[in-house]
Design a binder for these strands. Structure first.
Length: 345
DNA sequence: AATGACTTCAACCGCACGGGC
DNA sequence: TGCCCGTGCGGTTGAAGTCAT
């Protein structure tokens, strides 16, 4: 958190044009919230100016997206969300915005922080416990009980590759990481026996648990597809992540046709909706209509066509993923992880 | 109670990208 | 074509909170 500017600067518009930095005051929040509710999102620098805020547009955008948005779900991550994050991270890497797009009400910043604090810490604990207890068959080993352990399969990177250093990114690959990975992949001892860690998690492969959709060219020659292990991986992951249909990953959808208004009374509606959802996250995630984003279903209509575009754009931006790699990846995933109900357009 | 270490998370920074001119 | 501007993203920072001693 940044130290707020001295409050004396706050309203001293005429004599001090310096933009404020640091924590937002409740007054600033009110100004931004009121402006956004009444005018919707436009050019952020205009928002900052017109709302009477001595902030840069970027800061306003961040504040709105990460804190003031009415559809934000506050509070701790549910185990289901945690599981989903870990799984998605194993697929997408540090693409926080894309992960966030699949976790309604959560922001990329929130997920990023969660990952960097909670999940990384657990992985570190995991690796340190592994150094003190080299016998991985030790019954005290708790990996099987941790959600991250269930999902830390090698993940594809932007270039379609993965490396061991992705799990603990704060340092170059070390024995710690190797130890952690050793734990993560314990379900596949045969794979290690035959190929070794480096071969399995080499720099030019993506572990695809489905033999049928396995692109051996892409995977490169370090993979061990000929050991019949993909089926085993599928079985293990299937058993741990859940049976088919248990885990639903919200699809990204373009809701550009929706008419949305954020008038105050409707905010309450949104809050109710999201409160309901947070009470039953899993059923929410499993809902076929994760078109809970489809807010038009709540009969919300824009009162002013000029006003709704900003919010609409926001939803559209949040929900739409047009990136070829992600779509390909998700298609790949949907075929490779049949127990995940990916619903891609 | 004091204090130092550790954790959390809001906010900033720099970069990349795309659109408009 | 190149420049400018707005936006979005991911990495990083650092104050506040919490925990351990």
């Amino acid at each position: 958190m940044r130290k707020p500017e001295p409050s004396g600067n706050k309203n001293n518009n005429s004599s001090n044009n310096k933009l404020r930095k640091g924590l937002w005051s409740p007054e600033e929040d009110d100004k931004l919230m009121n402006y956004m509710l009444n005018n919707g999102q436009g050019c952020w620098s205009d928002v900052a100016r017109n709302a009477g805020l001595q902030r840069c547009g970027k800061s306003c955008r961040l504040r709105w997206i990460n804190y003031l948005r009415p559809d934000l779900k506050r509070g701790a991550f549910s185990p289901q969300e945690e599981e989903l994050i870990i799984h998605l991270h194993s697929l997408l890497g540090n693409r926080w915005s894309q992960i966030a797009a699949r976790l309604p009400g959560r922001t990329d910043n929130e997920i990023k922080n969660f990952w960097n604090s909670t999940v990384k810490k657990r992985l570190k604990n995991l690796s340190s416990s592994s150094t003190t207890s080299p016998n991985t068959s030790d019954s005290s080993f708790e990996l099987k009980d941790t959600v991250e352990a269930r999902h830390n399969i090698p993940r594809r990177q932007e270039n379609g590759m993965f490396s061991t250093s992705n799990y603990l990114q704060d340092s170059s690959p070390t024995s710690i990481q190797s130890n952690a990975l050793n734990h993560m992949i314990r379900p596949f001892p045969a794979m290690l026996d035959h190929s070794g860690l480096n071969n399995m998690f080499g720099s030019n492969g993506f572990l695809n648990p489905s033999p049928s959709s396995c692109n051996m060219t892409q995977m490169g020659n370090n993979m061990v597809g000929d050991h019949g292990l993909f089926g085993e991986v599928t079985a293990v992951l299937g058993a741990n992540i859940g049976i088919e249909g248990e885990l639903f990953v919200p699809p990204l959808e373009n809701v550009s046709t929706e008419e949305i208004s954020y008038k105050t009374d409707q905010r309450a509606l949104l809050h109710d909706r999201y409160n309901m959802q947070s009470n039953n996250n899993m059923s929410y995630l499993m809902s076929n209509n994760l078109n809970s984003h489809n807010i038009s279903n709540t009969s919300m209509k824009a009162e002013n066509g000029d006003h709704h575009h900003g919010v609409e754009n926001y939803f559209q931006a949040e929900l739409t993923v047009g990136e070829w790699d992600l779509e390909d990846l998700m298609k790949d995933v949907s075929s490779s992880f049949p127990f995940l109900d990916f619903q891609l357009e």
